[in-house]
Amino acid sequence: MSTVTGIPPKGYQAIPDDSPARRVLRGMLVTAPIFIVLAILLVWITIENPNFTDPPIFLLFLRRAAPLMILAAGQLFVIISGEFDLSVGAIITTVVIVAARLTNGDPDRTWPVIALLFAGGIVVGLANGLITTRLGVPSFITTLGTMLMLNGATLWWIGGTPKGSLPDNFRQWGRLGIDDVPWLGQLPYSVIALVIVGAFGTWLLHGTSYGKQVFATGGNPRAAWLSGVDVPRVRTVAFVLSAISAVIAGILLGGFTGVSPSAGEGYEFQAISAVVLGGAVLGGGRGAMIPALAGAMTLEALFTLLNLLGLPQPLRYSVQGVIIIIAVGIAAFRGRKTR
């Protein structure tokens, strides 16, 4: 920040200290810990499994990481705007179960059902946003409520156990890709979706006035409101973006892992962890897209590594907990120093 005080002298011109290059560099510095952690994990995985850097193998890793990374991209908008979205795990479960029941293995129904899922996701996101901003319910409670409602309603509808199955042209999005790409082998559709979502998210958050409004809203809602930002609308759109990202993640996961009432379980906390690992601050106002995606990839790399090391399944939770606390602790410490 510039430290100009008092009245500027005549002919004073503000020096733009916020050139895009500097901004990106500063963002990288503030959020560097996550890139270091990610690099260490990826190198360690490569030591354990030298094939890991082969493009096809690495693409398989990216395919597995894509749903969480896409989810993190959506959650990031909500977190930076100063809110939480706990409903994304329930949205994923709902997407998988509803898709299986409605398509019932019929490939002709795939496209209408996918359209319906996106429409439903937008409705859930709008409900989250409007209840939070217009009724003044804290988003933690709003999205906890929609989580209960979605999980309850879906399981009620199917009577507790999943019915129907997903047709192959629905499952292909999570399982297949474009074959015979030179050097890469198969380019998974999930990775393509990840690149599109990542690029769109980066542009929307860091390159548009909507993105600036998201930061302003989270940094100081009152100041943002007084400077003409429609705070409720900015937050509502963020919830819709998060819900859409959950629908995409759900479609990919449905193809990848199959139909189960616990398909999305725990994803809300993983997405929030990922975003926070990427340097976003709960409470809003700070965060960035690439580090958030790196945070999500770090979590998946951690799971892959612990798998390779053959650590007992349950201890993976403990390691995840320790890493989250240490990484966020370091970020908090650096954040205070730079102030």
């Binding site: 939480f84 906390f269 929030i272 962890s273 926070v276 601050v281 709960l282 409470g283 939770y317 403990s318 995840q320 907990g321 320790v322 989250i324 606390i325 966020v328 602790g329 908090a332 410490f333 205070r336």
Partner: peptide, 15 residues
Amino acid sequence: IHINAFIATLGTSLI
């Protein structure tokens, strides 16, 4: 350490 309570207790919960 000034870690947000949500993240801190989510972390201890995982541990």
